[in-house]
């Protein structure tokens, strides 16, 4: 039973990581279009949109890789959780303000994902993050708690 649970948590962890790697690569490929998507939320000032478009996909990529590799999972998952909360807040504000925009979550300028659909998807990702963190905490209480190489996580 606990073996099955281990497999399941590993599957969720890798799936979540893969989603973030996929999202990151699409954005890194077209930073100008992603900056446009960020600007469409009308939250950040002009340069802020570009700064976000430059930095955010790489943070997503790093966290996605950590989750897939199973290295420093707690940190990676926590960042992904916070990012998801930020995305949810941005989407909710877009809905409240009645902005008819594309989510900009994955492929830029492709077919449009409405804020509602994106919100539902982000909630699913948040639940997956929660699951990964729980599984990680369970594992952390095991015999080799806190053990691990001391190399910087990157």
């Amino acid at each position: 039973m606990s073996q099955l649970k281990n497999y399941l948590s590993a599957a969720v962890r890798i799936a979540l990581g893969a989603v973030f790697i996929y999202a990151a690569v699409l954005k890194i490929a077209d930073p100008v279009a992603f900056a446009g998507s960020v600007a469409a939320y009308r939250i950040l000032p002009y340069f802020g949109s570009y700064l976000t478009a430059a930095a955010l996909p790489f943070v997503e990529l790093a966290c996605g890789l950590l989750l897939v590799l199973g290295y420093r999972v707690r940190s990676g998952a926590l960042i992904i959780g916070v990012l998801n909360l930020v995305f949810i807040a941005a989407l909710a504000s877009a809905i409240v303000r009645g902005l008819d925009i594309d989510c900009g979550c994955f492929k830029q300028g492709g077919e449009k994902t409405t804020p509602w659909a994106a919100l539902a998807r982000d909630l699913l990702f948040l639940a997956m993050t929660w699951f990964v963190l729980k599984a990680e905490a369970r594992r952390g209480r095991g015999p080799e708690a806190g053990a691990g190489p001391e190399a910087p996580a990157s």
Binding site: A53, A54, A55, P57, F58, V59, L78, A153
Partner: peptide, 21 residues
């Protein structure tokens, strides 16, 4: 660890897109 991960990856992103920025 979180600070380090975010700082490193964000710096890579900013360096990667420095001309655009």
């Amino acid at each position: 660890e979180i600070l380090l991960i975010v700082a490193l990856s964000a710096s890579v992103g900013i360096a990667w897109n420095r001309t655009l920025l």
